[in-house]
Design a binder for these strands. Structure first.
Lengths: 202, 202
DNA sequence: ATTTAATTTAACTATACGGTTAAATAATAA
DNA sequence: TTATTATTTAACCGTATAGTTAAATTAAAT
């Protein structure tokens, strides 16, 4: 049949992301791909090999999408808005992906450590320079690029990772989740920019 | 021997947190607790029961510690500083805990959903009122308590969850990690307070 | 001292699961 | 047509793992 390998990869991705490597079952992957276990091993010799293919493909798919324009020469504020907006949109379509990646790194770093370079090309020095220029113009205290990046990533990604707890603690119903995410597209850049803009040398 | 149950729980916590429910092995737990598998089942009838005990205990241990003073009547800025400081200290001693909890909720919500109430008592209305009072004094635009909480939690917890990626992307060596966390105790309240303080009705 | 509870030993069951195999069949390419 | 490749079927192997059992031993309680 057409595109068996693609169906296998899609099925594997679905199951691995939903249940993690240890919780995933080769049989279930085969079922979802609508083939049998024998053919599954015919295409990908082992669970490890299959996982490797899925993980690599996933990182290649999501990594560059996000960091592509971070190194581009556009104004800082635009950069932040664009980043947050695009990142939220991407994760909205793959809401379970961040936790999956983070957890696999955690429970089995050896298995995934080789691919971690993929998509992790971030020119921190250039970004720091841009930050310095910005704070100079505003005559505010300097911003450390490390905390700048961590702050943005945190506020953007964490709501997805902690969705169930956020929903429960903050009483956000499923119907309001989408709206909540739209609000964050506004709130996160606001939080970051206000942090940078305020005239308070600490 | 003395305190066998405690040793079992400690061992189980260690293994469950390190490898997740699916990756954890009863034999390994028994080994670490320095007992045998038979005695393990003598104390906790099944893996599920043992996990339940560990998960419940963990939530009870960490939940109240953190949220206890959030509802207390202390100034907002103090509250933020205190929260961030205490939270970072607590997680520093249990750095793998947040990802463990979040991931277990993700891969098997049915198994853990019953205990999610534990420690999740947050009076959002009272906090929103305090925020309103604060912005009124500063005559700045109102802050939505949902994003307030999510922002603080995100910036505090996420660095631990994403530690390997943060370290790689931002070139933070293990020796500098502790310093980095100390910086965050300063940066996070600063980010939040500047966000609130700036006179910019959006 | 006697009973009760805690702990070990060691073998065992049942099952789930990753992976294999071989033969048959269908589809595709040469 | 013929050879090659893809796919199915179905049984099978080996092993890891949760959980059991029963008997023996040690420690604690009465």
């Amino acid at each position: 049949m057409a595109n068996t390998e693609g169906r296998i990869l899609a099925a594997a991705k679905e199951v691995f992301i939903a249940k993690g490597f240890d919780g995933a079952r080769m049989q279930e992957i085969a079922d979802i791909a609508k083939i049998n276990k024998a053919l599954l091993h015919y295409y990908f010799r082992s669970k490890d090999k299959l996982f490797e293919a899925v993980f690599k493909e996933t990182l290649l798919q999501i990594g560059p999408m996000v960091l592509s324009f971070v190194n581009e020469p556009i104004p800082l504020e635009v950069k932040i808005w664009k980043f947050v907006d695009e990142y939220i949109e991407i994760i909205k379509n793959n809401p379970k992906l961040p936790l999956f990646i983070l957890n696999e790194i955690h429970v089995n770093p050896e298995r995934v450590i080789n691919f971690l370079n993929i998509g992790a090309f971030l020119d921190t020095d250039a970004l720091q320079a841009q930050l310095n220029k910005e704070t100079e113009v505003l005559s505010t205290s300097r911003i450390d690029v490390k905390h700048f990046v961590v702050n943005i990533l945190s506020m953007t990604i964490f709501p997805f990772i902690g969705k169930p707890i956020m929903q429960k603690t903050l009483k956000i119903k499923e119907d309001d989740w989408e709206k909540f995410l739209e609000e964050r597209k506004r709130i996160i850049p606001q939080t970051i920019m206000n942090w940078i803009k305020i005239n308070q040398k600490v």
